[in-house]
Simulated scan of single mutants.
Amino acid sequence: MSIHECKLIKLPKISDPRGNLTFIEGQNHIPFDIQRVYYLYDVPGGAERGGHAHKALQQLIIAISGSFDIHLDDGKERKTIHLNRGYDGLLVPNMIWREIDNFSSAAVCLVMASERYDEADYYRDYDEFVRATQQKNLSV
């Protein structure tokens, strides 16, 4: 995978004077069925989240409230995406290292995942992740 496959997805936004509504449908707005949803909140100032990659799992990451930065790395290239709108989702395919930081006050990070939790799907050591990406590139 390449960081160029990470992309911002504009989600539907239904504007209403009583408040806006955004919805997400698996296999419609995102290319997978949603198997797990979780969210990060009350992240202390200066803290980082993430620091891993997934072997198979894909994610859609949304700043439901506030803002934060997502640093993406495919083992060769890096880029940073700033999320701050509840109708923008960042699609992160498998084999992309991600770190999340710069959380604003009261930020809420919502994550929709293509798979249920499985510790065996994680790369938690960056050097091991890079070795795996290099091996995949050699076998292609």
Rank of each mutant, 00 (worst) to 15 (best):
I14D: 06
K76I: 07
Q59Y: 00
W97Q: 10
Q59D: 02
R98C: 13
R36T: 02
K10R: 09
H4P: 02
L90T: 05
L91F: 15
L57Y: 06
L72A: 00
L60Q: 01
V37C: 05
V108K: 12
H82R: 14
Q35K: 15
Y123P: 05
F32M: 06
R49N: 01
K55N: 06
G89L: 08
D73G: 00
L90I: 05
I24Q: 03
S65I: 00
K55M: 09
F103T: 03
D88W: 11
P93C: 11
H71A: 07
Y41E: 05
R78H: 07
K7M: 10
V92T: 08
E77V: 06
T80Q: 10
G19N: 06
G89Y: 11
H4M: 09
H29N: 12
I64M: 14
G66E: 04
Y41M: 08
F68D: 01
E115K: 13
V92E: 09
R49C: 04
G66H: 01
E99Y: 00
Y117N: 04
I14F: 13
I81M: 06
A113W: 03
T80F: 02
Y87A: 05
Y41R: 12
L8Y: 03
L72H: 01
V108W: 03
K79M: 12
I96Q: 07
I64D: 10
A63N: 02
C109T: 11
D88I: 12
N94K: 15
K13R: 15
Y122E: 08
I81P: 04
F68K: 01
R85F: 07
A113Y: 06
S104C: 06
D69A: 03
A120N: 15
L110Y: 08
D69C: 03
M95I: 10
A53K: 04
P31R: 12
S104Q: 11
D33K: 12
L110V: 13
P31I: 05
M95E: 15
G51L: 04
D125A: 14
